[in-house]
C-alpha cells in the first residue's frame, strides 16, 4: 500500500515528467504508469493543466507549405483537401531573408528578382519558408549555380554563377536528393542563363531543409535512365530564405 510519502514522491515525478526534465528511461517508466494506472494518468493530466499555459509564451511560427504536402501524401489523404494556409509574415519584414541576401549572395538576389518579376504578383508577397534557396557548389568550392525555390508557385529558378566548363556534347542535369532517398530528376539546366523548373507536388513534398540539390554531367538532353549516369560536379543543401 502506498504511504503518503510514496504518493508525494510519485506526484513529484509526474510533475517532472510534464515539465520535461526526466531522462528517457524515467520518462518511459511514467508513460507505462499512465497507461496502466488511471490514478497516475489523472495526476499527470492535472500537472499538464497546471504547467501547459506556459506554452502561451512561445511565439507561433507558420510551418512551410511542404510540411502539409508531406503529411497529405504520407497519410494518403484525398488530394483535393485544400492546403491550409496559416498566417505568414510579410516578405519585407523577414530579417533572415535580408541577412541571407546581405552575405554577398548577389547571384541569389538576381534569382529572387527574376522570380519576383516573372511570376504573377501575389498580394501580399509573403515569405517564411515559402521561399527556399540553395547555393550549389562545385568541388573546387566555387558556386556553380544558385537556386531559389518559390513553394507557393511551385517553381524553382536556377541561376548560373560560375559553372565549370563541360564537354559540348554533354548537359548539366539538376537532381533533388531527399535524405536517404534516390535522386529525383529536375531536368537539364543552362550554363549561360537562368532556367525555370516547374515543380510537381511529389517534388515539392521533398523540398526540405534536409534535402540536397546536385548537378551531374549527362549526355546531351539529360540522363537516359532517370538516375544520374555521369559524375556529380556540384551540390548544395537547401535552406529556408
Amino acid at each position: 500500500m502506498n504511504t503518503p510519502t510514496d504518493h508525494d514522491r510519485d506526484d513529484l515525478r509526474y510533475a517532472e515528467y510534464v515539465l520535461g526534465v526526466l531522462d528517457a528511461d524515467a520518462r518511459a517508466a511514467v508513460e507505462r504508469e499512465i497507461h496502466d494506472n488511471p490514478q497516475a494518468a489523472a495526476a499527470v493530466a492535472l500537472w499538464q493543466r497546471h504547467l501547459l499555459p506556459l506554452s502561451e509564451d512561445i511565439p507561433a511560427v507558420a510551418p512551410a507549405d511542404y510540411v502539409w504536402a508531406r503529411l497529405q501524401s504520407g497519410l494518403g489523404l484525398a488530394p483535393d483537401i485544400p492546403a491550409p494556409a496559416p498566417a505568414r509574415r510579410r516578405l519585407w519584414d523577414s530579417l533572415p531573408l535580408w541577412r541571407w541576401l546581405g552575405i554577398g549572395a548577389s547571384m541569389l538576389a538576381a534569382a529572387c528578382l527574376v522570380m519576383l518579376f516573372s511570376t504573377p504578383l501575389p498580394a501580399p508577397i509573403t515569405v517564411g519558408a515559402q521561399y527556399m534557396v540553395s547555393s550549389i557548389q562545385q568541388d573546387n568550392g566555387i558556386t556553380g549555380w544558385t537556386a531559389a525555390m518559390d513553394i507557393q508557385h511551385a517553381q524553382m529558378v536556377v541561376v548560373p554563377a560560375t559553372p565549370a566548363a563541360i564537354a559540348g556534347d554533354r548537359s548539366p542535369e539538376l537532381w533533388l536528393i531527399p535524405p536517404g532517398g534516390k535522386p529525383m530528376p529536375l531536368g537539364v539546366i543552362a550554363r549561360d542563363k537562368p532556367t525555370t523548373v516547374k515543380l510537381r507536388p511529389d517534388q515539392l513534398a521533398n523540398l526540405t531543409a534536409k534535402a540536397l540539390l546536385a548537378v551531374s554531367v549527362e549526355p546531351a538532353g539529360g540522363s537516359p535512365t532517370g538516375q544520374p549516369t555521369g559524375p556529380v560536379v556540384a551540390k548544395g543543401p537547401i535552406s529556408g530564405a
Binding site: A62, P63, I81, K210
Partner: peptide, 29 residues
C-alpha cells in the same frame, strides 16, 4: 476536412513549440 482545418488552426502554435525545443528547422518540420 476537419483534419486540414485543425492543422490550419494549430500547426503554427505547435511548430513554434517544436522550433523552440529542437532549434533546428528540419528537425522541427
Amino acid at each position: 476536412r476537419a483534419f486540414a482545418e485543425l492543422y490550419r488552426r494549430t500547426s503554427s502554435r505547435l511548430f513554434g513549440v517544436c522550433l523552440r525545443m529542437l532549434r533546428d528547422r528540419g528537425e522541427a518540420e
